Structure formats: structure tokens, C-alpha cells
Amino acid sequence: MADPLAEVEFLARSHNRIEILATLAADAYTRRELGDAVDASQPTIGRVLNDLSERGWVDYDGERYAATVTGAYVADGITALRDRLATETRLRPIVDYFPTAAVDVGLDAFADASITTPSTPRPNAPIERMTELLAATDRARLVSHAFNRDKLELLHERAGDGSVTVEGVFAREAIDAIAADDRLAALLGDLLSTPDTEIRVTDEEIPFAVELTDDRTHFLLRDEAGVVRGSLDTADQRVREWAETAFRRYWENASQVSAGDIQSSVR
């Protein structure tokens, strides 16, 4: 009996083997058609077809090649593994800072996510990505354990000119930190006075910082010391549904904050 790991190694050693097997699992092809469908030379295609045929993964009816039942089964598994590893590789720089225990969505939902990390020329790149998304949206819904200055300043400007609707739920310590700074407290008070803004506060733990904009769900990622280590945003509907459910739950159990509350805190 063939060693399963040896078979995985056989496929993994050649991108062409995986591509040709997956292509034939989707449809039948002549050898010439297969050459148009995959990026490989005819001699390479011939060698791969022989290798796959020896394992019973490909059949030839005299005109076209197609994956057998077992070939299609193997193709499904190896491409799923390849895609998982591609996702893991992309997420690796930020996964330690992502609140996976609190975000009840499989990692495959983040396969196409936009990931932003600090760099030497752009140390504030994650914050810049956050403000880019908030600057382009008509409606911002936020749930967060923190309320940073950049976010507050942008929302203050946009809500002030009536270009965005703001609904936010923040941990009490986040609002208290704003209220303790005279300038930021004044900005928050102004923001709360705009007609399309409502901010609520909760004593519940919020283990993430997430913004829902028009078409993206964005996470700002911090380490245990509160230092921003990256950001992740996606248009995946599974992530969006999770975020909307999380927002509603925190929103319904939180208390509204008024401009007067902030003014009282400052005094």
C-alpha cells in the first residue's frame, strides 16, 4: 500500500501535478486543450498525465483526459490543503494578535482579507488603513475596547459636516481615557452633539476592536501592551454577519453617552 505522506510529497513537489489534476477534476480535456488551460509545456503535461494515470487518478477515453473518482477526491483534498496553507501564510504575521477566541468565524473566511502591518517607512500603516476605510464610508458602526485619537478626530470631522452616521459601543475605560484629556474630551463632546451620532458605553469586556464600514469589516490588532501590531479587513459575508451580531449584542446591553456626560467628567 502506498504511503499517504509519500503521495502528498509527490503532489507537493510539482505545482503542475496539482494544477493538472484539479483541472481534470473539473472537466475533461484533450491534451491540446489542457495545454491551453494550464501553464505548462506539452512535454511536461505528458509526464504529469503518465504519473497521474499510474496512480489511477486520470483516465483517457481515446480523446480526452478526465480525473477518476479517486483522482477528483485527491484533487479536492490537496487543493483545500494548499488553500489553507496559503491563508495561514498570509495570516501568520498577525494571527498572534487576532482575537480568534472571540471571533467565531473560521480562518478560511479571511483568505482574501487585506492585511496591513507597520513597516519602517510606514509605522502607522494599520491606523492609516483604518482611517482610509472610515473616511470613505457613509455609515460607521464600531465596537471596541479602545478609542484612539485618529479615529476620534476623523469621526469628529466627518460627523460635523454630516457625511457619516456613527454608532459606537466602547468599553468604559476607553471613554474614560478620552474624557481625561481636555482636547479629546472636547472633540468627543462635539461628536456626541451631532445629530447622526450615538455612542454607548459598556462595562462588559470587549476583546476586539472592529469597525463595520459600507462594505468592509475591519479589525485593528493590538498586543497585550496595547501597541498596534496590524489591521485586517475583509468583505467576506461570514465575517460581516459575525460582526453585525456582535455589534447588536453589545449595543442592546450598553448605555448611551451624552455630551453632558463628557462635560461632567471633565469638570
Score class of each variant (00 low, 15 high):
Met1Tyr: 03
Met1Asn: 03
Met1Gln: 04
Met1Ile: 08
Ala2Leu: 13
Asp3Thr: 04
Pro4Glu: 06
Leu5Gly: 01
Ala6Lys: 12
Val8Gln: 04
Glu9Val: 10
Glu9Thr: 14
Glu9Trp: 07
Phe10Cys: 07
Phe10Ile: 06
Ala12Gln: 11
Ala12Lys: 06
Ser14Phe: 02
His15Ala: 14
Arg17Tyr: 07
Ala22Cys: 07
Ala28Met: 12
Glu33Gly: 15
Val38Thr: 11
Gln42Tyr: 09
Pro43Leu: 10
Pro43Lys: 11
Ile45Asn: 02
Leu49Asp: 10
Gly62Pro: 13
Thr68Ile: 11
Val69Leu: 13
Thr70Arg: 12
Ala72His: 04
Tyr73Cys: 09
Ala75Asn: 03
Ile78Glu: 03
Leu81Arg: 03
Asp83Trp: 03
Ala86Cys: 01
Thr87Ser: 04
Thr87Lys: 02
Glu88Trp: 05
Arg90Trp: 01
Leu91Phe: 02
Leu91Trp: 01
Val95Asp: 13
Val95Leu: 09
Pro99Gly: 03
Pro99Thr: 06
Ala101Asp: 15
Gly106His: 03
Asp108Asn: 08
Asp108Tyr: 02
Phe110Asn: 00
Asp112Glu: 13
Ser114Gly: 03
Thr117Met: 01
Thr117Asn: 00
Pro118His: 00
Ser119Ile: 01
Pro123His: 00
Ala125Leu: 00
Ala125Trp: 00
Ile127Tyr: 00
Glu128Ala: 00
Glu128Arg: 00
Leu133Pro: 00
Ala135Lys: 01
Thr137Pro: 01
Arg139Lys: 13
Val143Lys: 03
Val143Thr: 15
His145Lys: 10
His145Pro: 05
Phe147Leu: 15
Lys151Phe: 10
Lys151Ser: 15
Glu153Lys: 08
Glu153Asn: 11
Leu155Cys: 07
His156Asp: 15
Glu157Asp: 14
Ala159Met: 08
Ala159Cys: 14
Phe170Arg: 04
Ala171His: 13
Ala171Asp: 15
Asp176Ala: 15
Asp176Phe: 04
Ala177Tyr: 02
Ala177Asp: 14
Ile178Cys: 02
Ile178Lys: 02
Asp182Cys: 09
Leu187Thr: 05
Leu187Asp: 15
Leu188Gly: 07
Leu188Pro: 04
Leu188Val: 10
Pro195Asn: 07
Asp196Asn: 13
Val201Cys: 08
Asp203Arg: 06
Glu205Tyr: 12
Glu205Trp: 11
Phe208Ala: 15
Glu211Asn: 11
Leu212Lys: 05
Thr213Tyr: 05
Asp215Ser: 14
Arg222Ala: 15
Ala225Ile: 11
Val228Pro: 00
Arg229Phe: 12
Gly230His: 07
Leu232Lys: 07
Asp233Ala: 13
Thr234Asn: 11
Arg238Lys: 10
Arg238Asn: 13
Val239Ala: 12
Arg240Trp: 06
Trp242Asn: 05
Ala243Ile: 02
Arg248Tyr: 13
Arg248Ala: 15
Trp251Ala: 08
Trp251Ser: 12
Glu252Tyr: 06
Asn253Gly: 11
Asn253Arg: 13
Ser255Val: 14
Ser255Trp: 09
Val257Leu: 04
Ala259Tyr: 03
Ala259Asp: 10
Gly260Tyr: 05
Ile262Glu: 01
Ser265Met: 08
Ser265Arg: 07
Val266Ser: 07
Val266Cys: 09
